[in-house]
Design a binder for these strands. Structure first.
Lengths: 346, 346
DNA sequence: ATGAAAGCGCTAACAA
DNA sequence: TTGTTAGCGCTTTCAT
């Protein structure tokens, strides 16, 4: 990334332009430009003179003029929902961090658009756009796609408009988690869902149901509690659940945050985990990998998702192809201390 | 003849330009430019036609042309450390969100630069820069200041180079927290610090010491444990602390995250909070405002800090003044359920 | 190997 | 009020 000096009005001092360099070196601006762009056509002697003039004048190319004249952009846009439940989640933080990290390697700049409701993202700044999930901004996605800006969606399987995406097999994750509990012998399994506006929460719920159905287990309706990924909601849900007559012996939560809150609840109520009740989360959030009790959870490869997504975007940008690539990454069960057989009395 | 096809341009995505808008609206490009820049000189009727044409064509101004022609940018840069302990913290998340929210109001775009170690932020894209703290990137700050780009530092009192900042009186916060514990009657007070590379952690520690000194309390060295704002470290610290013979009756932690972890630790060890030991945090993190036990903590006005910082930046940009403004915001003690008198046996 | 010159899309005099 | 036009600094033909 070349650095140049700002062309602000506030900036009084006059900075040398390519013309000054040309004059000083006794060549034309075209030759200077060639030197700047590493053209092999410049005679070694002239090249040296130009380089000397550049150093002498402290010349820095004006990046805006470069871009205007056809140079490439070096920035990627990341559009992420600003809604509290999502923005503060481990998922969102990890996505931002990974994108930032990877772009650092690619030597590109990151243009972050935190999305509330207005569709005012200016795609002129960027060569390509990464959408972190699509929630209440289908219009925005459609517009960017329609503008012909290369883009890729992360964490959502999008059918319309046609667009590349990299997502995670959340249904499989939900299925595996539930299946594991069933195999341990649990028959009374509750589920605290994520925000059902999100596709991943819906899919995790679907996986939960599928596993139960396959095992021919029917559950009372209140065993499915709607959460929103947040701990507050998880606490409400688990509290309600354990005030009913019929209590589950296992709880599958759609996020580790919620699972952890549930574990805390049990700790407070002196309900033993996993002896009396098993808990499974989702995320493999590193925050819960230590301490006296590690969560049984579902690992979802967020970093890989970001890297794959950016790779697709890169190819799209470089080849100028409009090829649509979609990937669904598998999840993996991680067994921790929060699950075991159901109490024998059950 | 295929060989002579213009290479790049023919494949380049073609955006509508100001010229297309002008034609479509039946006015000159100057009039379109005036509309774009909110000039009051345009007749209402023409303004509407232009706006309509813009919408119809999906026109977005080319920022590079704008900038080259001496126009205004509508974006600011946010530079934030990518180091895990800091990036994932409530502090960093809140800063990002608040900046995003406020810029949405100002109708500006956000360039996010997640900082690891290399100094490659390109200030050309932005009108101004917000630094979220300065940790291992003094060089970067110095460069941006020297380039004459308006900037403001958040959450750190910077002496060199001369630059505007808005920070928080962390020493006062640490002092208040400790003083409160002392007033409750505690004499054996431990402190788990934040990452001592950060100024705020240093200041909170200084405040802690000051309060003790003022009350003529001397403590064993191991009562100050170095943490790094993370829960992992907090657990290690509190575990070590409570394996010693001499135990504190109160613990002041440099963040709510750490304080919460400490509370959990006590919960697990069946040590009653606040009956047997009091805990004070720092942040007033909304995550810990519910549940069976609310934390006593120090509120730091992060949102206000961001707003004030951006306001200073705005003024700097608009007035083109180089005035340096510094602000230190006060903290406030929030009393929750995690503190009370020390046990009488003490 | 080099230079002249035509844009790139926009802003802001200056004219009308 | 509006339009015309001269740059902004650079890249890239095209001619030499």
């Amino acid at each position: 990334m070349l650095n140049s000096l700002p062309n602000n009005k506030s900036f009084k001092k006059k900075y040398p332009t390519i013309k000054d360099v040309a004059e000083s070196a006794g060549v034309s601006i075209a030759t200077v430009s060639r030197v700047l762009n590493n053209s092999p056509l410049v005679k070694e002697k002239n090249k040296l003179r130009v380089l000397q003039a550049i150093r002498k004048l402290g010349y820095k190319p004006n990046i805006f003029a470069q871009k205007l004249a056809g140079g490439k952009l070096e920035a990627i846009g990341l559009i992420i929902p600003g809604y509290e439940g999502i923005f503060y989640s481990y998922y969102a933080q990890e996505i931002m961090r990974e994108v930032g990290l990877y772009l650092e390697i690619l030597k590109k700049d990151l243009f972050l658009h935190i999305f509330w409701d207005k569709d005012n993202f200016n795609s002129n700044y960027v060569e390509g756009v990464v959408f972190a999930d699509i929630i209440r901004n289908e219009t925005q996605l459609r517009r960017v796609v329609q503008e012909g800006v290369p883009c890729v969606v992360i964490n959502k399987k999008v059918k319309e408009p046609p667009v590349s995406f990299v997502a995670i097999d959340n249904e499989q994750g939900g299925f595996e988690a539930t299946k594991y509990l069933i195999e341990l012998g649990h028959k009374k399994i509750a589920h605290i869902t994520g925000d059902l506006n999100t596709q991943c929460a819906q899919e995790r719920l679907a996986g939960f149901r599928k596993a139960l159905k396959k095992a021919n287990i029917t559950l009372p309706g209140h065993f499915i509690q709607e959460g929103n990924f947040s701990r507050v909601q998880a606490r409400k849900a688990i509290d309600f659940l354990f005030q009913q007559k019929l209590r589950p012996t296992a709880v599958f939560c759609a996020s580790d945050d919620m699972a952890y809150e549930v574990v805390l609840y049990f700790l407070e109520k002196k309900i033993k985990v996993p002896e009396e009740v098993s808990v499974v989360g989702f995320d493999n959030n590193p925050q819960y990998l230590y301490g006296p009790l590690t969560l049984t959870t579902i690992e979802q490869p967020l970093g890989e998702m970001v890297k794959k997504g950016l790779k697709i975007l890169e190819e799209n940008i470089n080849s100028k192809s409009k090829l649509i690539i979609t990937k669904v990454l598998p999840t993996r069960l991680i067994v921790g201390d929060s699950t075991s057989y159901p109490p024998s009395s059950s």
